[in-house]
Simulated scan of single mutants.
Amino acid sequence: MNRRATQGEPFPLPIDNRPLKLAPGMQGLLRCPVCHARLELSPTVAVCQRATCATRYPIIEGVPVLIHEANSIFTLADFTERRTTFFNLAPSWRSQLLDRISPSINRNVKSKANYRRLTELLLSDSPAPRVLVLGGSVLGVGMEALLERPAIALIESDISFGPRTALICDGHDIPLEDGSVDAVIAQAVLEHVVDPYRVVEEMHRVLRPGGLVYAETPFMQQMHGGRYDFVRFSYWGHRRLFRRFAEVDSGVVCGPGMALAWSYTYFLLSFVRARWARHAVRLFASLTSFFWKYFDGFLVDRPGALKAASGYFFLGRRSDTILSDHELVRGYKPELTEA
């Protein structure tokens, strides 16, 4: 824990007078992640306005770094010193070359349609919706539908710097005012947080009444993201995670074909250790399995896909009622999962 920063003492900052990446209308929503008080923003530092807290947070290249260090696996120094957090900001040329020449084994079958639906729901609820994106350093698959509507304002946050990062924060303590956004998006995020239940509670807190949540979370995917890979959810486990939300829609987003390609790839990788060999195996595996994902266009809506999916989505609305475990279990229908 960086005691100097959390006690309000000065910490070294680069001279940087560039404007904040967050739109002016979004800056007023920011709150101290420690005590939820308002922040005073300058080009290089954000200061909590509660005298008993007075925590100082760095602003780096226009990006506020609002981390509650006592509750997070990250520190302010991780960002002021530009350490690698989740994404490797300087990948090797070999890794970059491999990414360019290897066909992808991934396919988010439902993402584009789901984001179009989310966009329409948002604009039917509000003429100027505000959307928090967790894991928003890069544009998620299908999110173009949101960008095409200028009325929708995005707060793109992440735990890593990236081309779209406008706010550094930890989802366990979202630094926004209660009830301040119309939607929260977490695409391929919740498997990478220590306590997904806490993160979903925070999503519920910052949403307005009836606000929307959209999440995509893996089920059958091997470990990825290095040390930051913690959990997986079945379809029913994913529904329980969002038990404080009324379901609008849910189902398979990445199908059995993609799950099979991942398993095959990691099966082959288990035979080798040397870095060059792993690169070669990844290339071979992708060349010999990438086409399996195309079966998912046919399989994704079939009942058996719920048991064999690579990942699920959930679209819901903030609710004041909680789905009980009894209701969850009673809602199980064998015919939904029988092949």
Score class of each variant (00 low, 15 high):
residue 207 L to A: 12
residue 159 I to V: 10
residue 135 G to V: 01
residue 182 D to R: 00
residue 156 E to I: 06
residue 211 G to K: 00
residue 235 Y to S: 12
residue 139 L to H: 08
residue 173 D to R: 01
residue 237 G to D: 12
residue 188 A to W: 04
residue 174 I to D: 06
residue 170 D to H: 07
residue 172 H to K: 13
residue 224 H to Y: 05
residue 194 V to G: 03
residue 209 P to C: 10
residue 222 Q to P: 11
residue 202 E to M: 05
residue 119 T to L: 01
residue 143 M to S: 14
residue 199 V to L: 04
residue 159 I to W: 08
residue 238 H to V: 12
residue 129 P to A: 03
residue 163 P to M: 09
residue 157 S to I: 01
residue 205 R to M: 07
residue 183 A to G: 08
residue 181 V to T: 05
residue 133 V to Y: 03
residue 151 A to N: 09
residue 201 E to M: 10
residue 240 R to W: 10
residue 223 M to K: 14
residue 174 I to V: 06
residue 125 D to I: 06
residue 122 L to D: 08
residue 229 D to T: 02
residue 208 R to D: 08
residue 242 F to K: 11
residue 229 D to Q: 05
residue 227 R to A: 14
residue 123 L to M: 14
residue 120 E to R: 14
residue 178 D to N: 08
residue 221 Q to M: 14
residue 118 L to Q: 10
residue 118 L to G: 12
residue 154 L to R: 06
residue 230 F to P: 03
residue 196 P to R: 03
residue 165 T to K: 05
residue 154 L to M: 14
residue 139 L to W: 11
residue 218 P to E: 12
residue 220 M to H: 15
residue 164 R to S: 00
residue 247 E to G: 15
residue 187 Q to A: 12
residue 222 Q to V: 08
residue 168 I to G: 10
residue 202 E to T: 02
residue 158 D to K: 00
residue 221 Q to E: 09
